[in-house]
């Protein structure tokens, strides 16, 4: 299920997760997750705190490995990347799978250098090329008009909402195919949140995206499909419209209507 609905998805990959389980120090964090997300689709992950949402995101780009005593079982495929294969190109994977976090985390450097950071790591030295990449990325993140002519300013002088769009531009600068968004508007005001949501909608079909959010209305507005996690299990996944109007599982129903303890 969940194929893209006839969209031109360009280079956006599909994501297939099979029998994925994760333990922190023997404590199960994710248990036997199986799901498929079509290329260029937006999936929202919802669920109570501690349900495994953020762990799931961190599996997809292997950030999970940075934590001590983690064990991962199962298979994750993102396009042609077999994520947990011993021979996978981890650098290539992390380029292809960009991530944006709950709190904007610009590097303590200029706006330009923030966005140019990734491309420089990947070996782009030509300043003309860097300028073009930075400008394109900032335009895509709808920040260019607000920061053009201020490229040498420290990124920390930007407002929270601008910083978050800068982080998105920074993620886009290395031409990812997948964007993982971990509560990207949790610390933003409503107008800044609306701008980020609008970006997600515009990015549809260019990138495959997974957003973790505690804001059910936000999940409803931006996603094509919704996955409901609870206690490390995937309880239900379906088209957003179906999940929010008539979920099949009782647990999903109880979560969405607030009929749980």
């Amino acid at each position: 299920m969940m194929k893209n609905a006839g969209r031109d998805v360009g280079g956006a990959p599909d994501i297939a997760v099979r029998q994925l389980s994760v333990w922190y120090n023997q404590m199960p964090a994710l248990q036997n997750i199986n799901l498929y997300l079509g290329a260029g689709q937006v999936m929202a992950i919802i669920g109570p705190s501690g349900c495994g949402k953020s762990t799931f995101l961190r599996v997809l780009n292997r950030m999970i490995e940075r934590l001590p005593s983690v064990r991962v079982e199962g298979a994750v495929r993102i396009g042609h990347f077999d994520v947990f294969d011993d021979h996978v190109d981890v650098t290539g994977l992390r380029r292809a799978v960009g991530m944006v976090f709950q709190h904007p985390n610009p590097f303590p450097m200029t706006i330009f250098d923030n966005v140019a950071y990734g491309p420089r790591i990947f070996g782009i030295k030509s300043s003309a090329q860097l300028r073009k990449t930075v400008e394109d990325s900032l335009k895509q993140a709808s920040l260019w008009d607000e920061v053009r002519g201020k490229m040498r300013r420290n990124a920390e002088t930007l407002s929270g909402g601008q910083q978050q769009r800068l982080c998105i531009a920074r993620a886009l600068a290395v031409h990812p195919e997948v964007l993982l968004l971990d509560e990207p508007t949790a610390s933003l005001d409503p107008v800044s949140s609306a701008k980020i949501e609008e970006l997600i909608v515009q990015f549809k079909s260019h990138y495959t995206m997974i957003i973790v959010t505690h804001n059910l209305q936000q999940a409803a507005r931006v996603s094509d499909v919704v996955a409901f996690f609870e206690q490390g299990r995937l309880i239900e996944m379906g088209y957003t419209q179906d999940i929010f109007t008539a979920p099949k599982e009782k647990r999903t129903e109880e979560f969405l209507t607030g009929r749980f303890d």
């Binding site: 209305q217 929010f244 109007t245 008539a246 129903e253 209507t257």
Partner: peptide, 9 residues
């Protein structure tokens, strides 16, 4: 209240 699921129905 932005009801969802059965509440919305």
């Amino acid at each position: 209240q932005q009801p969802l699921a059965s509440d919305l129905r």
